[in-house]
Each structure stands twice: as C-alpha cells, then as structure tokens.
Write a protein that binds this DNA or RNA. Structure first.
Lengths: 241, 241
DNA sequence: ATTAAGTGTTACTTGAGGTAACGGTTACTT
DNA sequence: AAGTAACCGTTACCTCAAGTAACACTTAAT
C-alpha cells in the first residue's frame, strides 16, 4: 500500500490551517471578555468557560497561559499599529503630524482601557523580555521613529547619533503620560495631545535651532524626509516554524 | 491579679520594634541575593534557603510573597530617592541641573541593574496598582516635578495647566530611555544624560520662547523657584496601623 | 475502510504559595 | 520564682490553579 510519506503534503493536514487561526482568534476574544468580566487575574477555567469549552481545548491551541496572553497582546499590537501606521505616514505640517501620531495612540488606549491595562500590567516574569508584547511594540515603534529622526537629522547634515535615544525617550514619554491620563482622566484627550505635541515639537525645534536651522511647524516639510517604509508591521520571528 | 490590660504598653511588646525592622531588611537582602542567583522567578523556598531559615520564618515577617517583593521595591525606592533628592535640590545652571537629575537616575539603574529589572518587571497583577512600587515612585517623582514646573511656569506668569502632563511625560521619557540603554549599552551614560538633558532643555526653552521669555541655560536661575520641599520621602500610607 | 486531523469531556498530576502545630529561648511582669 | 508575651525555629501538611492523560466522537481526504 502506498502509505502517505512522512513529509508529504496530505490535504488532511492543510485543511485546518485557516480554521486554527480562526479558533485562536475566537479564544483571544473570549479571553478579553473574561478579563473584562473577572479582572486581570482570571483563571484558565474561567476563560475556557467564557469561550464555552473546557480547559484542555484551550491547551490544544495555546501552549500555556502565557502563550494565550501573548496572543491577546498581539491583538492589541494590531489595533495599535492599524492606527499608528497611517498617522505616521500621513503628510502635512510637522506640528500637526506629531499631534496626530500622539492622538492616535491616545485614541487606542482610550477606546480599550481594559485591554490596554491588562496587556501592559500582565507581563510575565517567566518569559524572556523579548517575548513581552509591550516591549516588542515599544521597540518597534521606537525603531521606526529612530529611522525617521535619523533621516531627518541627516537631511540637515546634523549628528544623527541621538536618534535612537530620542526615539525611545519619545515613546516612553507618550506612553507614561498616556498611562497617567488613562488613570485619572483630568483633562481632555485633545488637551493632552496638544501638550505632548508641544513638548515634542519644542524639543525638535530646539535641536534644529541649535544647528541654526529654523522650520515652520505649520508648513509641510519639503520632500519625503518623513516618509516611512510602507510596512509598519510587527516582524514576528516566532510566527514561522 | 492585675492582668496586663489589653491596650497597655507592655515593655515586652516594644522590645522588638527595631529588631523586626532589622530582620525584614535582612530578608530583603537575602531576596536580592536569591534573585541574583536564581533569576527573577525565585521561589520562597529558595529565598528562605538563601536567608538560612525555613519558609514559615519568612512568613512571620511578610504577609505573602508580594509583600516581600514590595519591601524589595521600597529598598530600590530608597536607593533611588537618596540620589535623586540631592540632585533635584542642588543649585546651579538649569541645564546642568537637568543633566544632573537624569544622570543620578541613570547611575542608580546602572549600579543595580538586576535589582532594577527585577523590581520593574516583577509587578504583581494581584495587587492594586497603588501598591506597585514602580508606579508609586513614578507618581512621587512626577508629583515633585509637576510642582517644580508649576512654580516655574507661574513665576513667568504662564499657564501652568500643562505641568502635570509634562511631569509624567518627562518621567516616562527618562525611564524608557534608561531601560533601553540598560538593555543594550550602546553609548556611555554621559552621552545619554547629555542627549536627554538636551531634549528636556529644548522643550523647556521652547515653551518659554513661545511666551517670549529667554533663559540662559548656563546661568543659575534667580531666586528659589526651583527649590523643592526639603523632604522628598515616600509618603507611605500603608506604613501605619 | 482507514486515518489524520479536529471536536470535546472528566479526572488526574504537579508545583509553588502558604499554613498548622509543635517545641524552644529570652527577658519583662507580677 | 512563676507566668507570659514576644520572638526563634522546625517538619509536615493544605490549597489552588496550571497543565496533562486518557478516553470517546466527528469529519473529510486517502
């Protein structure tokens, strides 16, 4: 009998590819609901119950709890990047663009405060830092920002060595201010965006001034200095294999 | 027989006051050593072993694991505040003072990277946010910064509404840049301090310029606008009772 | 018909956090 | 001197949530 050879592609093996992804997404949804219902320290039983199945089913799709939470995190990543990408790539006066990016971020956390808090606080100590979604996201955003800033600086023949620290500084700045704002909403989102954009703009402007360059914050930059790569996707090295 | 009345001060009760504190400190030390030895996910048994005692002893001094870790966190807080306080209160040209504060922070995390990482990553999901040491510290520092900035702005008759978001933004900025730097030490501490101080100074300068005020970054501010309260201690509401 | 995937269940194991119950030591109180 | 309030410390246990074993059923490609 012609047995199916070990590495051969049996259609039975392929048939589920899409299904599995859909199922995982379904469980991620359930987890988010369960977190909203029971708070951030839900148990796997409760999550399974919320999904209408029992625990072992969950474990067929996720290696362990932390794997599930990672998937929840990536869901958050997607929501964030979907908004941040366009905001970063948008044309327009620099001052507006800064505010736009900041505001896009604040929008996302404002619209999903529970998910956001869960993902940010719920990092696992038993996983390496590299598998922390928040860390990944921040690194990714910072990397993009660093490239943009670097291009910017080089376009003006300035030292671009500060681009990376600057980028991480900006990311941390917006995130922390956002956290604070989310906890005690003592001002409108617009006001905060405006304040943050002001800081950032002044920092940039100051840097340029120190090199005797003046830029009008309300006039679009010439050229494509600020153009990013069309793809601002998370390069997820653990996705393959 | 005149039994010791229930609320009365029996010297037997007081005799240990200092001792208990010393013992807790000792266990905190042991925990830090244990973390350094076994990584951030040490068990209570290992910590107890490191301290040379068995588990129940630990639990006589700490309500639970998270209480112990809280104490470890406060140890970190103390180290940080001991450096940050003087740096904030120091006189001198504003630009230098900013760099001094930033550098003080970076020094602390540079000197205690393991402790720092443990405290920052090891936040507990089962405790309310208010008991997160990192959150506490950031809030405290931001509050001080906000007051300073507010005074500063008011001294120049400017809108001080942005002081709080600014403060949180600055805290997040320095922290995140510091984290990044600690992970991949791709530049000297001095360079990073310089870069961050530059950003901050430019942001402040820009803000003042927008109100038609110019300040020389290298000249000490007149008066005591920048004077902080002599006490930059953590107000620990859970200490009493 | 066979078989590779998936569906699902109940009942178990495991491990780390935390506790009970015991006995000894010190030095203040009466 | 007896009593006792605090500590010292141990071994052996409890508990609870994460994760697994073993079982039975469904579907559709071979």
């Amino acid at each position: 009998m012609a047995r199916t050879v070990k590495g051969g592609s049996d259609a039975r093996r392929e048939r589920w590819k899409g299904h599995r992804e859909a199922r995982r997404a379904e469980f991620v949804d359930a987890t988010i609901r369960a977190v909203a219902k029971h708070g951030p320290d839900v148990g796997m039983d409760e999550i399974a119950a919320e999904a209408g199945v029992s625990k072992p089913v969950l474990y067929r799709h996720f290696a362990d709890k932390s794997d599930l939470y990672l998937a929840v995190g990536r869901r958050g990543t997607d929501m964030l990047m979907d908004r941040l990408g366009p905001a970063i790539e948008k044309d327009g006066p620099i001052r507006d663009r800064i505010r736009g990016i900041v505001d896009a971020y604040l929008c996302v956390i404002e619209e999903n405060p529970n998910l956001y808090r869960f993902v940010v606080r719920g990092s696992f100590t038993d996983r390496p830092v590299e598998q922390d979604v928040v860390h990944e996201d921040k690194a990714l955003i910072a990397a993009n920002l660093a490239r943009i800033l670097g291009d910017y600086l080089r376009a003006f023949d300035m030292d671009s060595g500060g681009a990376e620290p600057w980028a991480h500084a900006l990311v941390g700045m917006v995130q922390n201010a956002g956290d604070w704002w989310l906890d005690r909403q003592s001002m409108s989102r617009q006001s905060l965006s405006e304040y943050l954009a002001t800081i950032i703009w002044h920092a940039i402007d100051g840097l340029l001034r120190s090199a005797n360059i003046t830029v009008d914050p309300d006039v679009p930059l010439p050229g494509s200095v600020f153009k990013t790569e069309p793809t601002l996707r998370l390069i997820n090295s653990s996705e393959e294999a």
